[in-house]
Design a protein around this nucleic acid. Structure first.
Lengths: 141, 141
DNA sequence: AGTAAATAAGATATAAAGGTCTTAATATCC
DNA sequence: GGATATTAAGACCTTTATATCTTATTTACT
């Protein structure tokens, strides 16, 4: 469904959100069981997109402004990393595919993709962090 | 959503279904605008899985037994080519993820994936071929 | 100021997906 | 039986995604 980068991105952001304070790359990679250097790349990308902020130097790391936390949705992370590919683009790979000249599965795909989009747009980091903090959900296994 | 191979596989099978008789690789690749040699690979895979049958030699090609046509679902093609990855596997890439120890998006993903599965299992080639034959839907653009 | 601890950025390496090429096998037609 | 048209199979090439390594840059602390 998502790229590996996007999976790591979501998990990393969730870990930062759930921790409530600044955390180091090493902590993040450890907590979500991801390759450290690759995770760094993804966090840089998220930082450039304003989803997390990074602090250099000793006791540096990544953090999320408490104030913005409730507004961050999964859709923000996904589009920062995977772009809009999931939302648009034909399910069968046609260069163009729309209501007037659709591929054979156009309507059926559209319905499902809309569900997915809706879900990603409605799900906030804050909401997901609750289950994590209660020990009901997990970022690695 | 699907691999390129799977996209070509669906389009190729649809073209064969819609044509109603035996068609050559060249015809198929032309009709769905796909690389010929790569399409051949995919058709071989579909033939091994019994979804299409192939005939060698002059006037050979690929065909689908009329009798089985109404029973072929998108899910058959997808699982023949992409395997079960779409159905199972954690949305965030956890090695294990289930009701008792789920990832933070487990339930939300599950709902959408079930929709997708349902759609693929319920959609028959025959059904999709109708729109194609009526010129309402397209396999290339 | 100097040192150490962190992230940033760019170059490089590896693996997987996507795609091509060559040779073999099979069937048709003369 | 030989020539030709087709698919089958396997080796190979190319591109993209995944991952690592190296060298800045920034900041805290002494």
């Amino acid at each position: 469904m998502f790229s590996k980068a996007c999976e790591y991105g979501i998990k990393a952001t969730l870990y930062i959100a759930q921790s409530g304070n600044r955390v180091s790359l090493k902590d993040i990679a450890g907590a979500i069981d991801s390759p450290e250097a690759f995770t760094a790349k993804i966090l840089q990308q998220l930082a450039r997109n304003g989803i997390v902020s990074s602090v250099k130097g000793p006791s540096g790391g990544f953090e999320i402004n408490e104030k913005y936390l409730p507004e961050i949705r999964l859709s923000h992370i996904v589009s920062a990393i995977d772009g809009m590919n999931i939302y648009k683009g034909c399910g069968l790979g046609l260069k163009e595919c729309n209501e007037s000249q659709p591929c054979p599965v156009h309507d059926k795909f559209k319905a499902i993709r809309n569900e997915l989009r809706k879900m990603l747009e409605e799900t906030s980091l804050e909401e997901l962090a609750i289950g994590l903090n209660q020990g009901l959900t997990f970022l690695k296994r």
